[in-house]
Computed example of a mutant assay.
Amino acid sequence: MKPTEKGLRPEKIAEANEIDARISGALYMILADYNGMDMPSTNELKNSLRENGAAYNVVKNRMLNRALPEDASALLKGQTAMIYGDGDVVEVAKVIKKFTAAKKKPVIKGGFVEGKAISAKDVVELAKLPPKDVMRAMLLGTLQAPCSQLVGVMDQKIASLVYVLSAAKDKKEQEA
């Protein structure tokens, strides 16, 4: 439901539009419950996330509910912070997991990656993945494996032919 449909005040409309702009430009968004976090640890988390291309904002559940799909309302219980960005979600998930392990806060509720809903367990699983560059190297190795194996087999066949011809030459030389 868009804010203009309910006759909201202009500042609420502006706030809703700002949230929409943040969400529309993001590849991922992770929702977390920041209840109990003090300001120094919040700033520490924000700085860690910023280094990895993510942003951290506290939002009102009602305003965020307007921007998210209807099935996301279950995530909007308690105090909510959204962590979003357009970089590598795996690196951001690792930062969140490391910070949560050390400070026990924030509690991950779930989120969205490229428009698909993910659970809190999925965020933890994302943190276990290797970095994007390592995954690219693994994919490249997998794609190159059949070609390199074919080259090895062909090289072996040529080497076998050379050995046979060399043995035949040595035999002819001994006979002569």
Rank of each mutant, 00 (worst) to 15 (best):
L68Q: 05
T80W: 02
G25T: 14
K116I: 07
G111Y: 08
P40L: 10
E51G: 09
Y56I: 03
G110C: 06
A117L: 13
K46E: 03
A32L: 07
R50E: 12
E51Q: 13
D122H: 00
M39T: 13
T100P: 06
I23F: 12
K97Y: 02
T42E: 12
D88P: 00
E15G: 04
I23L: 15
G25A: 14
F99H: 13
A16N: 01
V124L: 14
M1P: 15
K60C: 02
E51T: 11
A32C: 09
S73A: 13
M1G: 13
K109V: 03
L27W: 09
D20K: 14
M63E: 04
R9Y: 07
S41I: 14
A32V: 14
E70I: 00
A21P: 07
I83D: 08
K2Q: 12
Y56H: 10
M39N: 13
R66Y: 04
A93F: 05
P10E: 11
R50Y: 09
L126V: 01
A127T: 09
L45M: 08
I108N: 03
D86N: 15
L31C: 14
D33A: 01
P131C: 04
E44T: 01
N57V: 12
A26S: 15
N43P: 12
A117E: 14
S119G: 06
I13F: 09
V58Y: 04
G36Y: 05
Q79F: 06
K77L: 01
Y84W: 11
R9H: 08
I19G: 11
I19T: 12
A54K: 03
V95D: 06
A21R: 11
V113N: 03
S73Q: 06
L75M: 15
K77F: 00
D86E: 14
G53S: 09
D33P: 09
K6W: 00
V113R: 05
N61T: 14
P131V: 05
D86G: 11
M37T: 11
V92S: 05
N52Q: 13
L31W: 12
M29D: 01
A26G: 05
P130D: 11
D86Y: 11
S24L: 00
D33F: 04
A74G: 11
S24R: 06
K12F: 08
E15D: 12
M37V: 10
D38R: 09
G25K: 15
E18C: 00
K128R: 11
T100R: 14
D20R: 14
A81M: 13
G53M: 02
E70C: 00
E5L: 12
A55E: 15
G25H: 07
V92A: 08
D20G: 10
T4L: 13
K97W: 01
S24C: 00
M39C: 12
